[in-house]
């Protein structure tokens, strides 16, 4: 009898990323959203502030007093602003996009202030969970792509088990509630029941632009209107590295200097 699988797992050597212990090119280079370049709006090329804002189909761009800001929590990464005004907007490479405050997703051209450390209350809640953490995922009205990216965390490239991170079927075993989707009306009660079934302390992560702000299909929605959210991960959908960044941010396990 053949044992076809026996050596197959060894065939390609180690394919697992070294991140966060070591840098990873795909982590560093993946462009999750554009950001303003910081160029002053001197040459408007015939566009006033309203027209610049109208470049974005989800209203992520805001122009006030000659300063452009871009809300990465609303951005659906269509890239239209970069195509139309490459002087004012550019893709920002890097998957380190998760933030513990909704307002901190708003990227402007001003020199970035030193990012505050993780909110003290999350840090306190997660002290006990850092080395072995169980995640319960809930789809609250996604387009289906977010689930692919969450599941990708289990493939050998990301292999989150190596970091002591596990997905669990039961909310009663879960420490992190990971939510995808706009927060559709039909999911309001199932989501609330899932949250209620989780033992405290709980960290809630909203992942993907749909969950953060409702994005294109749920304007004015997002899950923060349904329950308190601790960590926001932008992206349309949030790529696996951005998710991992968000989970480690929630656990206070990011390497130093990595926000």
């Amino acid at each position: 009898m053949r044992l076809p699988w026996l050596l197959r797992g060894l065939r390609d050597g180690v394919v697992t990323t070294g991140w966060p212990a070591r840098p990873d090119d795909y982590f560093d280079q993946f462009p999750v959203t554009p950001v303003p370049t910081g160029q002053p709006i001197t040459d408007t090329a015939g566009m006033d502030a309203a027209e610049l804002e109208a470049l974005c189909p989800t209203g992520a761009i805001n122009v006030a007093a000659d300063t452009i800001t871009l809300d990465r929590g609303r951005c659906i990464a269509c890239g239209r602003c970069v195509t139309q005004r490459p002087d004012l907007f550019a893709w920002r490479p890097g998957s380190d996009v998760a933030r513990a405050e909704r307002d901190m997703l708003i990227a402007d051209a001003a020199p970035a202030a030193p990012l505050p450390r993780l909110r003290a209350d999350i840090a306190e809640r997660t002290t006990m969970l850092r080395r072995s953490v169980h995640i319960r995922h809930v789809d609250a009205g996604s387009d289906g792509s977010d689930e692919w990216e969450v599941r990708a965390l289990l493939n050998p490239v990301y292999d989150v088990h190596r970091l002591g991170i596990f997905f669990t079927a039961s909310p009663r075993h879960a420490d992190i509630l990971l939510i995808t989707g706009i927060g559709s009306p039909g999911m309001i009660l199932p989501l609330a029941r899932t949250r209620a079934a989780m033992p405290d302390p709980v960290v809630v992560i909203a992942t993907g632009t749909d969950a953060v702000s409702g994005g294109l299909v749920g304007p004015g929605m997002g899950v923060a209107r349904l329950l308190p959210v601790d960590v926001f991960v932008p992206g349309a959908p949030a790529p696996p590295f951005a998710l991992l960044h968000g989970i480690l941010l929630a656990l206070g396990r990011l390497p130093r200097g990595d926000s």
Binding site: H137, V138, G144, A169, M187, T194
Partner: peptide
Amino acid sequence: GPVRSGVLES
């Protein structure tokens, strides 16, 4: 369901 046992859509 609608919350499934794995990472699946609702």
